[in-house]
């Protein structure tokens, strides 16, 4: 392994404060540089590691950029058809209620083709965690308009900008889910700064706890970037996200249980 290190004397096992968890495999992530998918995967892997969930976690990966999620986290996985992850997860959890079951879905998967599966799984209060990555674009197919693409935002299928008169409005699925009686904990976070990473991690840890207590559906939306799809550098994309995505998709809890 080629490494570049800082001051050698400090690099001792007893001084270790952060190391990639072994739940993340050695496979190189297929994502573009700076993509929030990788950061979210890592946070999820850390929670699985820290909470000792490897032997009970069953993930459902979507169709989209994160279709190969099962290459990256060393747990059991099922790869679902486009949009169907909440239905797949429903059965996994119903048939193995003692396991930790989650889906990981993008905006196209969760908020367009899988709208019905998402809403109904949440409305039944399925005891699963849904992680929803919203970057306002179809990344894998090369930057097409998503249900969450902002008004005026350009994509390869809205080359003159999303015209809400003909293309409709960005769909706030997380708000819809929060309004359903079956959902228990619904929050919107991001992973582009250390502070936001900490908040997201805390949110996932809460969702793990709620699932153990059979509380109902937890949904964590991560407003994320798509440097390639947005045609920006990663650092620019994070800034653009703060300035444009966050006003439309404000961060914070949408539904928190009374504790």
């Amino acid at each position: 392994m080629v490494e570049f290190s800082g001051i050698k004397e400090i690099i001792k096992p007893e001084n270790l404060v952060y190391k990639k968890t072994n739940i993340m495999t050695e496979n190189i992530l297929s994502y573009c540089p700076g993509c929030g998918h990788g950061t979210t995967h890592r946070i999820l892997a850390e929670i699985i590691d820290e909470e000792g969930l490897q032997s009970e976690a069953i993930g459902v990966s979507p169709v989209g950029c994160s279709v190969f999620l099962y290459y990256y986290l060393d747990i059991d996985w099922q790869e679902a058809a486009h949009g169907r992850a909440p239905a797949v997860a429903t059965a996994i959890k119903r048939l193995q209620p003692e396991k930790f079951v989650f889906t990981y879905q993008g905006d196209g998967d969760l908020a367009a083709i899988g709208t019905a599966e998402t809403i109904h799984a949440c409305n039944r209060g399925e005891n699963i965690l849904i992680i929803f990555i919203n970057n306002g674009i179809y990344g894998m197919t090369g930057g097409q308009m998503a249900p969450t693409t902002l008004p005026g935002m350009k994509s390869s299928t809205s080359p003159y900008g999303r015209d809400v008169k003909t293309m409709g409005y960005p769909l706030k699925m997380t708000e819809i889910v929060a309004s359903l009686p079956g959902s228990y904990y619904v929050t919107r976070q991001s992973v582009h700064t250390p502070a936001n990473v900490k908040k997201t991690k805390k949110a996932i840890r809460k969702a793990v706890k709620y699932q153990k207590l059979n509380k109902g559906t937890c949904l964590i939306e991560i407003v994320s970037n798509c440097p390639s799809g947005w045609k920006m550098t990663p650092v620019q994309s994070n800034k653009w996200m703060e300035e444009n995505m966050f006003p439309y998709y404000p961060l914070g809890d949408l539904k928190t249980p009374e504790e």
């Binding site: 400090i10 690099i11 001792k12 001084n15 270790l16 404060v17 952060y18 190391k19 990639k20 968890t21 993340m24 190189i28 992530l29 994502y31 540089p33 700076g34 993509c35 929030g36 998918h37 990788g38 950061t39 890592r42 992973v191 582009h192 700064t193 250390p194 990473v197 900490k198």
Partner: peptide, 18 residues
């Protein structure tokens, strides 16, 4: 050794000591 870099790294590239 604040680990901010490691926390935001999408590819889990950085190990931190303090």
């Amino acid at each position: 050794g604040c680990a901010n870099c490691a926390m935001v790294c999408p590819d889990g590239v950085i190990t931190v000591y303090k």
